[in-house]
Design a protein around this nucleic acid. Structure first.
Lengths: 200, 200, 200, 200
DNA sequence: GATGAATGAGGGTTCATTCAT
DNA sequence: CATGAATGAACCCTCATTCAT
């Protein structure tokens, strides 16, 4: 039998992307076989190649799309004209919410980066640095207008991102703190990192 | 052929550990074959099994030893009687120096944790939580005696550790900043996270 | 390369079964590698796993099918209503002809039984005991109606089967005796074992 | 450390022979590794090679010694001057007792024969045919003097041996029948096979 | 688009055997 | 004599990928 009635190529491709994302996040790119992805999708391994030329391309597409969506969402969320403290708070809230919604994408974009070959790797790195420029720019603006007291803008940028990303490793739904509470805490922690005056 | 003159079991085992550490850090556990480890060590694949029963045991030993050494070194470095601010600074300096010296161990202890099976995994998690209790205890003491103004001790602990570990992903020898400078920056960043008064 | 034109799954599986049967009979299960089976079948080793999940399953299927076919053929050959002497003769003739036709199956069903794991082993043993019940029942009937003078029905059953099976170890096509002659001899030998009056 | 006090080369060799015999009988020659033999003996695999040049030689020695001991014991047990019926009874009793005492040797001498290479194989076959000549000679004598009524001496010889050997596959200590009872049954069964008048 | 059968390479692991110690 | 470390080949099996159907 060929195609089941009601299924279509685009659906299969989307299902494959979701399944691959899940499995890569769970077990790692190298440990997940095409057969495993196929089985979890409900097709045979050969069928994957109708949608993705190679396993590498499947990973690559997941990561490229993730980074591009991240950048696009970030740009979209940006409210121009905000003062640096507000802009930074907004960035923190965006980052946390976005990353918790896509914890699997975030996870593999860090863990599986090294499994990308050559140009694919460079492209992701480029996009990542582009994303990092967003908080960096806010820090610079805040340093310039005196709203922040930055120790070292580059290190601080990396520190903020590392701190925020760390949350994806321990956050659990129904944990001690709600997402709103966590967000609030991180907003304050970041404010401290940039030497903002604490208001309350 | 049997043993070559001059080689010895303990030497080979140590070489294997080093090579495996390097390769696992470079490419990931799943992507490194026993043959690759053997080749880089200068032995045949079968010889590995004279020293480690399985590939999993090789990874496990690396991680267990790393965590135990980390805990032992941390305990040894601890200077009792320090006030919380000094204890925290000392912890930060210890953590940075120790982790930069063992960046490969640190890296795989985060990246390959999921490749540990069952009990091995639990044991590493246990040791990690034990390590995290060190800064946590300092934070609590500092909160109690008023030297810190902690937003949330648990989140702050995780934030500190994530921030410090992040450095291992971008630190390069001969980078813009010396290790001493980086250390100094992180000491100040951490001080800010715990709401210490900045002295200068 | 993918499938060669003209080949089909069922054909390959059947060829594999035949080749495995031949090689297992020749050299023993443990001494035959999957590569050897594949080579003799004209495929790569990996292709076997499209048809049999493991080497053990390949052996198991051969033995299960053999025993089930044996039982089915035996039941089919049985002519109901025969008196014990005729029933026994018929059994002997059936057994000899069947076993000479399938000497490889018979051989491995004795030799490789111990290489079957757990449940597979038990199942074959069960089927074998079921087959042994056929001559045993004839012996009991013949003992009851006085046509036989059985020394011990269980030992005699085993003796008959061992004696008949022994033939597969020395029988050669084009040997001194034709199959018909051998059959006739064994019929008489069995008649003697059960204490039948020799008629001539 | 080298040798344990009290152990000696000859002892080790003997232990190895016993262990190998046991393991070969249990799992088959091909399925037993030198390491397994060594482990069960309490030495390292390398030590075996101080006593047996190869695995093949270890098997070969077991089989050669078995066959030679069988022939020697058989010759020794032979009471010259017996009439064919008594000689045959004596042979049956000898065969049963000898084979039950050495069931492992008998078992592997049938099962592992095919694992003997070239000359080793031929030699065992030669010894086996030599042993088979013993009952065959008795049958011929009995046919000549009228004490037996043999259907076909060669087939009958093989039938007798197959029948007797079959017992080793189902005999259990503490089974329904004692060894003496079994012996008596087989003596009578064999007497029937050779067409002796039943005395009672 | 999907299947199922195939390839050829390579996976982790075990093997018989060797030999310096 | 025994050890333990090594070799090189082979083990069963899985892999990414291909392609006739």
């Amino acid at each position: 039998m060929a195609r089941r009635a009601g299924s279509s190529g685009a659906e299969t491709a989307e299902k494959l992307r979701n399944v691959a994302l899940e499995l890569f996040a769970q077990s790692g790119y190298a440990a997940v076989s095409m057969r495993a992805i196929a089985a979890a999708t409900g097709v045979q391994a050969g069928a994957i190649y109708n949608h993705f030329p190679t396993k590498q391309d499947l990973l690559n597409e997941l990561l490229q799309v993730h980074m591009e969506t991240l950048l696009a969402s970030c740009a979209e969320a940006e409210q121009p004209g905000l003062m640096p403290p507000d802009a930074l708070e907004e960035f923190v809230r965006f980052h946390i919410r976005y990353h918790l919604d896509r914890s699997r994408e975030v996870f593999i974009s860090y863990m599986e980066l090294r499994n990308l070959e050559g140009e694919n790797f460079n492209e992701i790195e480029r996009l990542r640095r582009q994303y990092e420029r967003v908080p960096y720019a806010i820090l610079e603006r805040g340093a310039a207008d005196g709203s922040f007291s930055i120790i070292d803008p580059q290190v601080t940028t990396m520190a903020i991102i590392a701190m925020l990303n760390g949350m994806t490793t321990w956050y659990r739904d129904n944990g001690r703190l709600s997402l709103d509470e966590i967000e609030a805490i991180y907003v304050r922690l970041v404010a401290r990192l940039v030497g903002q005056q604490e208001e309350d």
